[in-house]
Structure formats: C-alpha cells, structure tokens
Design a protein around this nucleic acid. Structure first.
Length: 584
DNA sequence: TAAATCTTTCG
DNA sequence: GAAAGATTT
C-alpha cells in the first residue's frame, strides 16, 4: 500500500488523503472521512439528528455508487409501475398538503383536481402534523405557528369550493405512510397526490409511500412544484450539476426562456367535482391541530408575529403585488439597506409554500415587460434572488450529504472550530459589542426574521471572528427563523462561512464596522434594535466605545466588543488557510 | 455580494 | 499626501 502523507495529527482525525483526487473533487466512491469525525462534532451531530440516524446511514448518501434519495424515489416508481398501471379511481382523490399550503398555482393539487374531475368523484385535502418531524427538522415555533394559522385559512378557502381538509396529528413520523394508506382506504381513495420536498428524510419517506401505496392498490403521484425549474433539469455541457451560481443562473434563464410553460401557473380550481358534502360531510368539521408542546409561542409572541406575517396565500399574493408595484423599482439599490422595508419579506411565505415561486417569478417577469434578465434592474435582481432559492434546492438534490452535517467543501470539515458556549450565547443574545451584529441578532430574536445583508454579517462574524462551528449558527437560525428552509439556510451559512457551494472565498472576511457604515449609514437599524445606543445620534453609533460615545454605552450597559476584529481576522485567515492546505 | 495593503498617479 | 488603482489575503 502506498504510504500516505501525514496530515495534522490529532485524536480522532482521519488522514486519508486519497479522498480528494487531483482536481480537488470529492471522491464519492468511498465514505467521506468526515463521517468518522463524530467525536469532533459530537455535540452537534447528536443534537442535530435523532440517534437512530447513524454514521453508516449518513455515508449512504455520500457514496456515489449508491443512490441519491431522489433516485431511490425514481426506482420505487419504476419497480411498482406494473402494479399501479391498472389502478382505477373509485370513491375519492386525495391531495396531501405538506409545505405547499395554497390553492393558487399548486401543481400536485391541480393534478389531483383534474383526476377528481375526470372521474366525477370528490377531492379531499389531507394534512398531517408530526411533532417528531418538527423536532427532528428544528422547525421554529414561529414557522409552525404560521403554518397552523395558514391551515385555518386554507380550510376556509377549500371549504368554499366544497373541498374538505382533513387534519390530524401523528406523533411519529415513521407512521405517516401507513396512516395515509389507512385513510385512503377508509375513504375509498385510490389516487393520492403530493408535491415533492427534496430533503433526504422526505424523499425516502415518499419512496416508501410509493411502494406501500402500490401494494395496497393506491396510485401515488408526486409533482415537482416548489422550484421554478425542477432539480436535475440544468446541467453543464459535460452533464454535471453546476456548483457555481453564475453559470447555473445563465442556464436557469436559458431554460425558462426555452420552456415558458414552467412559468405558467396552474389553472385555478373550481368547486369540488364530486359531492363531498354528501359522502364526506364529517371531514368538513376537522380542526387545525394544536402546536406541539415544544413549538408553542407565548400569547404576546403570537400576537406580534401574526401582525408581522398575516397568514395565508391572500396575504402572500397581496404582498407580492405591493412589492412589484411599489418597491421593486428601488430594489436593486435599496435592497442592501438594512433599515426599513426595502425587501419583499416574502420568505416566510415561500418557505411554507404559501406563495408559489413560479407565480412570483412570472409576476415579476410580467411587471418587467416580459423579460427575466433585461429591463428594470430591481425586478431583474429580485428574480435572481428567487433563483438562489432554486439553486440551493438543486444543490441539495444532487449532493444530499449536506443534509447530514457535512459542509460542501470537505477541506473545511476538520477546521478547528471553537465550541465555547459562553461566546456562542453572546452571539445568540446580541451582546457581542458589535452594534450591527447585535442589532441583527435581536431582530431575529424578536421578529424571527433577519435582513439578508445582516444574515451575511452575523454568519461571517460567528464563523470568522469567533471561529465557532458554523453549524451551530445554522441550527440557531433554523430554530428561530419564521422562514427557515433547510436548503436556503444551509446554503446561506455555507456561503457566509466559506464552506459551501459557490462560497465567498475564505479570505473574504466581513469587517462588521465597514458593513455597518455601508448598509446602515444613519445607524437607524442599530437604534431600532439596540436601545442601549438609542441616544447616540452620529456615526459613533457604529463603534461607540472608540468614537467618543463611550459614556453613553457604558451608562446603558452596552457591552464592549468581545473580540478585536483585526486579531480575529488574522486568526481566521490562518486557520482557514491551514485547513485548505491540509485537506480533509 | 470584502477588506487590507501595496503601488501608482496627480497636484 | 490624498486618491485611485492593483494586488494580496
């Protein structure tokens, strides 16, 4: 056996250099060494995922000779095709709502409706809340609350079309496929529809459901819906998945210009094709489930959040319209200004599927006189931001191992992150002594949302200035954000910490002070979120302790900077450089 | 979608 | 010696 070059010594380190081939690409034919790093990331790994997800199961997704979850699903369809070909519709058609909580422009719902119409049978909506799922996926109480509030509206809107929405709680996620089959059989439904979610657990669950349905005489059809361009559609000339946004974006634009039907919204639903009031009357009284105990908001939070983010797709469509009419023209210039409503704040609605990304892009295109890439700079830029959402979902489908606590760039797996609870808590609580960072973290804590610019600032601060494992920040965001979406959140953290696909280069380290001066020039954002500094009027607010506002800061108890940025910057450069030279 | 530092240019 | 430009991290 060829001798292996000795890398950084250290307990639990795997020094296998063959993992990375000469082009620096991940060798997918063998387990990734980071999978054996559970000692290093022990606290993270155990906290992130339930213990039944072992390292071995992580490896499967990482192994190119095995299959991706999307391929597991495709295989399930292939192998059950004979069983389902002959299935005929009988008493009802079911649409299973997941994170597609809308009637408008919903691909699978529309297919379900068409199927019901062709067979003159009732359409039934189904929603299952799984507390175990919510816990495993770190769904924030705010997002759960928005979901439940939206279900109330969805139920009303469906009811007006005489379509019932049956909702229930299933404690264990494992039981969901069987429960769905049971319900279908109870209702005499032989056709089930749902939109795909692309996370590993979800795709594997759906693959199981396809087989379970097939063996029980039910045809389960899934649709690509959440992305404007379905994952897998865009590959480079060499047939590879893009790992850089810009070329991917050009391909995305090209594809949409060639395939205009991708942007066509699904037809509006009419009233229930079958008489559900007669056959399924009791389903109309189904109540929205309660939030699980660990996902509850206080009354005050609930009031606050339902004011900030009113539920339902009518609100989402209204916001879209207002944004496109009033804000979009300034968006290109104003979007980085962190104070005031310069952005659309549609992310909570995208994340839970209350608004269709397709509708959003199509409406923006129309507002831009039919062009996706030329014309009004604000509209073009905004379409590009919605495209980032597609990009990160495509990345997730192609490299599903990112679902398993892996960063995209393996060389940064072994970076010597800090795990200092105290420092981490100072970041969480917005007590770092860097006004722009603290303002952002407090905005997150109270509004459960943060401006995109400050997401980059605080993620850079955590991973570069504090050198704390970016996964802790990723997790904290998921636990708090009302718009928490795995792919976008992971993508954003990978970008900010320079460990992801198309990241900013590791030596591109934000200077919190410079960011503050550029994007909150008048200090209004800081003044809004950091009351200790409210009385500081001038530019010293960005750096109170060294700009002559020390007295105010001290009196109000605003903390001194917890680190020296220049020193931290040097340390981060050194560590990142070392990790990138040493490899995984 | 960076910032720091080094180098050149101009008055 | 400021400001613009190029290079480095």
């Amino acid at each position: 056996m060829a001798p292996q070059k000795r890398k950084t010594a250290g307990a639990g380190r795997n020094n296998d250099t063959e993992q990375i081939n000469k082009r620096g690409k991940l060798d997918l034919s063998r387990p990734h060494p980071s999978a054996q790093q559970s000692e290093n990331f022990g606290i993270v790994l155990r906290e992130f995922y339930p213990p039944e997800i072992s390292n071995e199961r992580c490896l499967a997704y990482n192994d190119g000779t095995l299959e991706r979850p999307i391929e597991t699903l495709q295989r399930a369809y292939k192998e059950t095709a004979d069983q389902t070909r002959a299935i005929e519709a009988n008493a009802a058609v079911v649409h299973w709502f997941k994170s597609d909580l809308r009637l408008h422009d919903n691909r699978a719902l529309h297919l379900a409706y068409q199927s019901a119409k062709e067979n003159n049978i009732p359409l039934i909506g189904l929603y299952i809340l799984s507390p175990q799922d919510l816990t495993a996926h770190l769904s924030s109480p705010a997002r759960v609350d928005l979901t439940l509030r939206t279900l109330n509206q969805l139920k009303r809107d469906l009811s007006e079309l005489d379509i019932p929405l049956y909702m229930e709680t299933q404690e264990s996620r494992k039981n969901i496929p069987q429960r769905i089959v049971d319900l279908c059989q109870q209702w005499g439904a032989s056709h089930l529809y749902a939109n795909l979610e692309y996370e590993v657990d979800e795709l594997r669950r759906e693959a199981k459901l396809i087989r379970l349905c097939a063996s029980n005489g039910i045809k389960f059809e899934t649709a690509h819906d959440t992305c404007v361009v379905a994952p897998g559609r865009l590959t480079s000339q060499q047939g590879k998945q893009y790992a850089v946004y810009s070329p991917w974006y050009r391909a995305w634009l090209g594809y949409l210009n060639e395939n205009r039907d991708c942007l066509e919204p699904s037809e509006e639903l009419g009233s229930n094709p079958g008489d559900a009031r007669r056959s399924f009357n009791d389903l109309f009284t189904s109540e929205v489930p309660a939030a699980p105990e660990n996902k509850q908001l206080s009354d005050e939070e609930q009031r606050h959040l339902s004011q900030l983010y009113p539920a339902g797709e009518h609100e989402a469509l209204r916001r879209l319209e207002v944004f496109l009419e009033e804000k979009a023209k300034d968006y290109a210039d104003a979007r980085n200004t962190v104070y005031g409503q310069t952005t659309s704040i549609l992310s909570p609605y995208f994340a839970s599927g209350i608004l269709s990304a397709r509708t959003a892009v199509e409406q923006a295109r129309k507002a831009n006189k039919g062009s996706l890439q030329r014309g009004e700079p604000g509209l073009v830029q905004w379409i590009g931001e919605v495209a980032w959402r597609d990009f990160y979902k495509h990345v997730l489908v192609h490299w599903p191992f990112i679902c398993m606590n892996k960063c995209f760039k393996p060389e940064f797996t072994n970076l010597e992150w800090e795990y200092d609870e105290n420092k981490f808590n100072m970041w969480c609580e917005g007590k770092t002594g860097f006004p722009i960072v603290d303002a952002a973290m407090r905005q997150l804590k109270q509004d459960k949302w943060m401006h995109n610019r400050t997401r980059m600032v605080v993620s850079s601060f955590l991973s570069k200035d504090l050198l704390i494992d970016w996964r802790r920040g990723e997790r904290y965001f998921m636990e708090n954000l009302i718009d928490g979406d795995f792919a976008s959140n992971h993508g954003g953290w990978g970008f900010g910490s320079s460990t992801g696909v198309d990241p900013q280069p590791y030596f591109r380290i934000f200077n919190p002070l410079r960011q503050s001066e550029r994007f909150d020039p008048d200090g209004e954002y800081i003044r809004k979120w950091v009351p200790e500094l409210r009385d500081i009027r001038g530019p010293e607010i960005h750096e109170p302790h060294v700009r002559g506002a020390e007295a105010i800061a001290q009196k109000s108890g605003y903390p001194r900077p917890m680190v020296d940025h220049a020193t931290s910057r040097d340390r981060a450069l050194k560590q990142y450089k070392r990790a990138s030279e040493n490899g995984p």
